[in-house]
Structure formats: C-alpha cells, structure tokens
Design a protein around this nucleic acid. Sequence first.
RNA 1: CGGGGCGUAGCGCAGUCUGGUUAGCGCACUUGAUUUGGGAUCAAGGGGUCGUGAGUUCGAAUCCCACCGCCCCGACCA
Length: 498
Amino acid sequence: MEKTAITPIRSENYPEWYQQVIIAADLAENSAVRGCMVIKPWGYAIWELMQKDLDKRFKKTGHVNAYFPLLIPLSYLEKEATHVDGFAKECAVVTHHRLVADGKGGLKPDGELEEPFVIRPTSETIIGESFAKWVKSYRDLPLLINQWANVMRWEMRTRLFLRTSEFLWQEGHTAHASEDEAIQETKQMLEVYAAFAEEVMAMPVIKGEKPCFERFPGAVNTYCIESMMQDCKALQAGTSHFLGQNFAKASGIEFQNKNGSLEHAWTTSWGMSTRMIGGLIMTHSDDNGLVLPPRIAPQQVVIQPIYRNDEQRETVLAYCQQLKLDLEAQHFAGDEIRVLIDDRDIQGGAKSWEWIKKGVPLRVEVGPRDIEKDAVMLSRRDDLSSKQSTPRAELLANAVMFLTQIQDNLFAKAKSFRDSRITEINSQAEFNAFFASEQNIDSGFVLAYAVDEFAIEEYIKPLKVTARCMPLANNDTPGVCIFTGKPASRKMVFAKAY
RNA sequence: CGGGGCGUAGCGCAGUCUGGUUAGCGCACUUGAUUUGGGAUCAAGGGGUCGUGAGUUCGAAUCCCACCGCCCCGACCA
C-alpha cells in the first residue's frame, strides 16, 4: 500500500485522522488550559484571511466594527429568559477582583464582587445595553454593528477548532425599525456567509432555517448554512438569527417612530467562528494532510531552492527570488499571489512533505538542472501526481489559472461528494432503517418532509440524528410529515452532526 | 457531577507487581561525516525535582498515606 503522510487514514479512523492533520499541518495544539487551544501561526494565518475577507463583506453591506466588554454582569444575562436557559450551564463566572497571599506561598482570590461577571458566551445582552442608549429615534436606525472577539463556553468535551471552551468569532448585532427590515438583514447575512463559504472556503453549503428546537436561545428564527464533512456528518458553518423584539424588550431598545410613539426595535445577530477552520479541514483534506483552497492559503506558492554547494546556492536563490517577484506581481482573487521561498537547511524530501501536509496549493522546486532549461518542477496539492517540469514562462502565464482551477476543483469535488450523499426519504420506517444501521456512518444527509414542531425531536433523538435545517431553496410541493402524518409544507435535512 | 484509567526527558513509552549500580528505550533535538530533485544513513552528544507532600527503610520511580493534575466514557453545545 502507498505510504501516506497521515496515519491513520480517513477510512480507518476519521476523528483520529482529523487530529493528526492538525498536528501535521501545525495548525493548533491543546494548551495547558483545559479545553482551550493554542492556534499556531499557520492556523492563525488562515483565520486572518477569513477575517479579512468576511470583514470586507460586512463593510460592503454597511456594517461597522466596534468592541464590547468581555465581562457581562450576571444581571444582564438574566434579562432574557430563554437566553439564560440556553447558556447558563456553560458560563465561566468571575467572582473576585484581586489576589492576596494565601499564607502558604501561593495566592488566593480576594475582594469578592457584589455582582459576579460572566465571561461572554455571546454578547446580545451587553450589546443590547449599549443599543438601548444609542437608539432614541427611528433616525438612529438601522444600527449595523459587528465585533471581532473571543467568547467562552464551558464545554465538557472539546476538539481542536470544532469545539473549544474559548474560541474566536465575529458577532454581528443589528437593530431595525421594522420587522421586515430585520428579517431582510438576517437573510442578507446568511447570503454573505454562504457566499464566503462557497467562494473562499470552497465549502458547498445548504442555506436553511433551523427547526424550532434547534433555534438560538432567545431567537424567533435561526438561519444557518450547513455543510457536509467527508465522514458525511453535518457541520453548521454559520448562523444568522432574527431576534424579533425579544432582546429589544429585555434590554429596553426603544425608539420614537415618525408618529412620535415609542416602539421596540427589531434586532438580529449572526456569527461565524474558528470552528469553520475545522470544517475547512474536514471538507478538503486528504490522507496526506491539509488541502487548502488557494483563496484561504497563507502561502499559495512555496518555492524550494535545490542546490549542493554555495556556488549553486547563489545562482538558484537569485533565480527563485526573481520568480517570487514575478509571481507576486500577479493578482489572484484581488490580492498579490502569496509566495514563500523556503530556504531552510533541511532535506528536500522532508521539506516537500512538510508543505504537502500544510496544504500549500502550488509547490515549485528550482534546481540547477531546471535553471539550465529556464524551467521549474511544479506540483499541485490537489493532484500530487501532477509534478512535472514546467517552463518558467508557462508557470508565470498560468499561475493565476492554476490557482483558480484548484479553487474550483476543490469546490466541485466537495459539492459532488455532498450531492451524491443526499437521500430523499418518504417514511419513518425508511428513515429509521437508514440511520439505525451502523454501516450507515457514511450515509450522508436525509431529506424528508417534516413539520416544524418540537415533537419531531423525540422521533430522531434516539437515533442520534439531528434536524439540521429546512432548506430555503426547497420549492417542493407540500407533502406529509414522515413522523406525525401531518401536512408539511417543507422538507427538512437530517444528519448526524458535529 | 457519576464510572474507569494515567502521571518517568519536548512527544510516546518501559521499569513499579518482587525496593538495590550512574533511571532506560523510540521519536524529536545538537554536532560531524557521507548523502541530497518524494519522507536519508552512520557516529558522537545534550536534555530528568520519576506529579506534589509526608512517611516506612541502610536504601524508594518502585511500598504506605494524603493531596494535586490530566485523559477516557455518560447529561450540554458555534
């Protein structure tokens, strides 16, 4: 059998493969703090690229960035009843404001706070407090704010990127004068997420609405984008919530309308997190490590100089530096092509594999033999057998096309993978059989008519299946709920999930 | 918080049952030589409060007691 860079391979042990890819690509590691990860430079660079692109999209849709406190007074969280229920069980609480010597050479907390603070699990309540101050008139609306922040949710079981106690995200919070406008905002941001996921991360997503029992605590409606991982499990890649007037009432966000009477504003919130990096890994990577879509790759081209002595070194490096400049003069997806010359003194083979494991889209080897021909050895990460001598001029002429092809190929591959694993099901018996079978771990998504009622959860919970969403694109004729037999206007996506 | 397990070099482990040289192995790291276009080989090195504390003993990684920490399995979740 062919030697792979990652062991175990996906088919042997998918969860372990996932961990190994993260280690091999040097993306992140567990920290000394339980449940919290250290995001290493290669992983953080991916996050920075995500931030940069998303931030541009937020600005383009009229949002501005601001920053709100990490600590939320306990009483704020208590204001919205459903919200409390949703987050109470996973909050870190700050109860003291200083340390004193404990007499045993250590320190102990001292100065107990009158009112404890909660480390934000999300910021609806504290941002609501500000919004209430900022909004007086209909002329102050809409208020379109985003914040880039860390949040903390005290998780029992954690996995790098997918579920950590502290994670990085952005949370958009907006307030509007009308229900309709707030709903439009909610849907607009869902579209922004979907476009980002598909265009930049090359992750095909299903846009949908969460069933009532999967809603964000305190929301009227929750919309989401759902993606399929290579083990066929679903991953929620982004959410957008229509909060109605629930939080406006809880925080007192009121405005005077044109008639002079007071109304509660309509608010939304939406977020995407570092969890998406987990999704990126599980969508594209293979048994040789990470595979990065070029648009999210910290380096798009890595040049490996090859030489045996100082004399060759000088010639080869000069050639590489010029090649780097020529590549950087070109633009892919609006940015200079990102090129790195890896001149570290380690063995060539090991170096190649390192960049393969890190998922760099294009690898270029340049040695004296290539320079004689004015060519390079080029290989593509999406096809490791592609390594071949390529004239320098050809590389320069086609670099952008290669990156575009890789980006498109990864998306197309992921999309056909997903599309071939969506099964329509028309009866509960069929549904149970589908998910009951242990062999059906890689069985994919099920699409079936179901009513949007809490009762549905009881049918699917024993199977460890979750209702992911009701796809917005669903334009099917009305049918019958496979669980309750009631008329159902929409189909629902069911899957095992992360 | 319930059930199980583990703390020995950066990582992975052996040694503990049955106390006894200078605590060992693999990977990684450093140096040198030979190599080098798909994951090198050989040689020589560096690195340890054996989780912490208190005991038993001539002698403790090993036995006793207490404490601390971590991991896995269950209820929650972007």
